[in-house]
């Protein structure tokens, strides 16, 4: 073990906040995994790469075209959501009813295509853009917290609230829940299920774009940033893969564990901690924190 360190409470709070903020990003990507999985029973391993495309789109609009940050961010979400809709309409819809393995291979393939296309279009150098939160700090009673961390956490909470209200209160949100619970019955209610599923893809892609915009002040945008999708996947599994609050909470837990591992454990543990969490969950508690078993009443 390395040298034992003094743990002062302020340090612990800072570690937790920065862990929670990267965890929120994992949580948002995990949310994208879970939404698509609940609706279509597909696991989209290109979710991280969709976030990467969102990062580059925001960079192009804000840094290159010189749009206002908020306008550029909003446009990015719209563009990436439309991209997600078309992805389902043109590609993934054809795989409904195929083996899970085909879906995994296809989405892994899409992920490498997206990385290659992004490399050709935007190059392989990391890029970034200035946000209203860059390089600012908030002081709360002697504890220094970066405004970027806070903006990520606040942004995630707001987005989750908005999504909750959308799913619980709106007609379309209810139809999405219904279609994911019982596809055939939703058809019988007049719900155009295929279009609804494409809209679910649009929402998860839009969430990934928001994650990219929130992450931009902390991490540079580059071709490989989508690889954090794997950490997010660990978060989704921890949350029970199928539970929406579970995805966010699982992501946050993975983020905090990662920060703590980086501080208290020898070098190398920070990078592998998400995978260790994933393995531990699968071995010890495979249904996850919020996993539910659905049984049909006969």
């Amino acid at each position: 073990m390395g040298n034992p360190r003094l743990v002062d409470p302020a340090r612990l709070v800072q570690l937790t906040v920065s862990g929670a903020s990267s965890g929120c990003i994992y949580g948002l990507i995990a949310l994208g995994f879970v939404l698509v999985y609940k609706a279509t029973e597909m696991v989209n391993f290109a979710q991280g790469e969709i976030m990467m495309l969102g990062g580059f789109t925001a960079y192009t609009l804000i840094a290159k075209a010189g749009l206002n940050y908020w306008l550029g961010a909003g446009l990015t979400v719209v563009i990436i959501a439309a991209f997600g809709f078309l992805l389902d309409l043109l590609v993934l819809r054809r795989l409904i009813g195929q083996k899970q393995f085909s879906v995994v291979m296809l989405t892994f393939g899409l992920a490498s295509i997206f990385r290659a296309v992004a490399g050709m279009g935007w190059g392989y150098d990391p890029v970034g853009f200035v946000t209203p939160f860059t390089n600012k700090v908030v002081r709360v009673g002697g504890i220094v917290l970066s405004e970027t961390s806070m903006s990520i956490i606040v942004g995630t909470v707001l987005l989750c609230t908005a999504l909750y209200l959308f799913f619980a209160r709106t007609r379309m949100g209810l139809a999405m829940q219904a279609a994911s619970q019982n596809q055939l019955a939703a058809y019988y209610m007049g719900v155009p299920v295929k279009t609804v599923f494409s809209l679910v893809w649009a929402i998860s892609a839009g969430i990934a774009a928001i994650a990219a915009v929130l992450l931009a002040p902390v991490a540079m945008v580059d071709v490989n940033m989508g690889l954090i999708g794997m950490n997010a996947f660990a978060g989704a599994v921890l949350g029970g893969f199928g539970s929406i609050p579970g995805a966010v909470i699982g992501g946050v837990v993975v983020g905090v564990v990662e920060q703590m591992a980086g501080y208290f454990l020898p070098a190398g543990f920070q990078e592998t901690s998400a995978n260790l969490v994933l393995l531990a969950v699968l071995i010890i508690y495979p249904q996850g924190l919020f996993g539910t078993l659905t049984r049909k009443r006969v």
């Binding site: 209810l174 219904a178 019982n182 055939l184 939703a186 019988y188 719900v191 659905t294």
Partner: peptide, 18 residues
């Protein structure tokens, strides 16, 4: 074929989706 995780009220409202 009910929507198992929606309430009875929400199930009825889904019937009026159109």
């Amino acid at each position: 074929e009910v929507f198992p995780f929606l309430t009875v009220d929400e199930n009825l409202r889904m019937g009026a989706y159109t």
